[in-house]
Design a protein around this nucleic acid. Sequence first.
DNA 1: GTGGTCTAGACCACA
DNA 2: GTGGTCTAGACCACG
Lengths: 138, 138, 138, 138
Amino acid sequence: MILQINFKSGMPVYLQIVDQVKAAAASGALQPGEALPSIRPLAEELRVNRNTVAKAYAELENEGVIETLPGRGCFLRENHSALREEVRRELLTQDVDQAIVQAHHFQVSREDFLKLVHERLDALEEKRRAHEDHKEAQ
Amino acid sequence: MILQINFKSGMPVYLQIVDQVKAAAASGALQPGEALPSIRPLAEELRVNRNTVAKAYAELENEGVIETLPGRGCFLRENHSALREEVRRELLTQDVDQAIVQAHHFQVSREDFLKLVHERLDALEEKRRAHEDHKEAQ
Amino acid sequence: MILQINFKSGMPVYLQIVDQVKAAAASGALQPGEALPSIRPLAEELRVNRNTVAKAYAELENEGVIETLPGRGCFLRENHSALREEVRRELLTQDVDQAIVQAHHFQVSREDFLKLVHERLDALEEKRRAHEDHKEAQ
Amino acid sequence: MILQINFKSGMPVYLQIVDQVKAAAASGALQPGEALPSIRPLAEELRVNRNTVAKAYAELENEGVIETLPGRGCFLRENHSALREEVRRELLTQDVDQAIVQAHHFQVSREDFLKLVHERLDALEEKRRAHEDHKEAQ
DNA sequence: GTGGTCTAGACCACA
DNA sequence: GTGGTCTAGACCACG
């Protein structure tokens, strides 16, 4: 599971975490019973305070998405409601539109924008691959 | 220009107004020199406090997007993007990354994602062109 | 209503506030419908953070003791359950015992302890009188 | 020596242990040179983690109240109050004030309050005397 | 090491 | 001015 925080969006960081964990669960990127990243390491990785992650996890627990065993960790629950295909499509479209509108606002041409998209696709794929290798090496 | 406030998103209302005015300007829905809605009616329409709209307009003025002529109203300035190139690039990259990560969470393939990007580019370009025509027809 | 925070007791400050507001309500020192001190001034008087008082008031609202009207203030509700006489007596006895045990721990004689009690009774009565005068002068 | 933990008070458990050991020493229930309960059985009796009891004993040792002989146990030291006179006075004053304010909240008159103080002084003195007799009888 | 709580500072929305 | 929220730092209890 890869989390990406947008600090300039104005959206509370803890809600960004909540939404992305839900998205990962909805997509199957995070499997039922699987452990979520521990609060402390995740906070360090995202460069936010421990409590911000803790608040996100507490919210997820309240909504019944995860289960938290103090001293053990947090785990995705079996019975989590997966999002419907149309809803996922709509959420993704919103994110794509946001990027496109921003690009137009900054007067970036269609070609430059597509080039950037390919760059970032490659960069994040590379990062994800490194992550996997690291995990296997353990 | 139509503004839509999402009270559940957690994003500060005044920032939602700021962003949407910027987006309207970027998309051509709001033309340079054109007047923005007055504070009082807009606040009523959006069901928010007048202070909140005033704060959004003050922020837009600070960023050089609009110009306030006391007693006359607020108007979109001619050259309203004053951010440095690297900063704009970084902000745009964040938006692109956000969309890509969301796509990954939803297990959308690279090809399908790029197809969606092209679709939305076309759709938004079409929308912008319609605005232009509407303006010329006036 | 006079609040007295004991910073060395280890008991959370916000719970001390909760208990003392309940005690004041139970005793009639705070009347139904009456306004509680506003968060900011009270926090300043007690030398604690605004949020600490806010948390105490939120807890009191959750328990149904007070009612909070955002932008207006916090008010004691009509239907608050007054404590039974025996319970009040028991709570007071606990506080007295705590002081006496502390005195013995510090090897303060019975006479010195009683002298201190009289001193503090006079001091706090004086303080309360000054408070009343200030209120009347307004 | 009987220890009683209140899990609802919000006061840290290890501090409750510290205070009650001090009170036991002050009241004579625990005599200088006498051994304190061992960590493991006490933790089981109080239903708390062993670390918590260990932390309390470490704090008591730091404050000079007890002495830890590794492998032998923990023992109450002969002279266990090392605070400066002003500090002790201040701590005691806080406890006295707390009781007085509680009395005021419960609208207990000065006379009734003083009567209660005398009652409790007598009661606790009696209790301490009983402890002394018990010790001499051994 | 794990998660949880209390206090604090800065900011938001509203009257 | 009012109360409410988000983020952060320090500490607590537990395995």
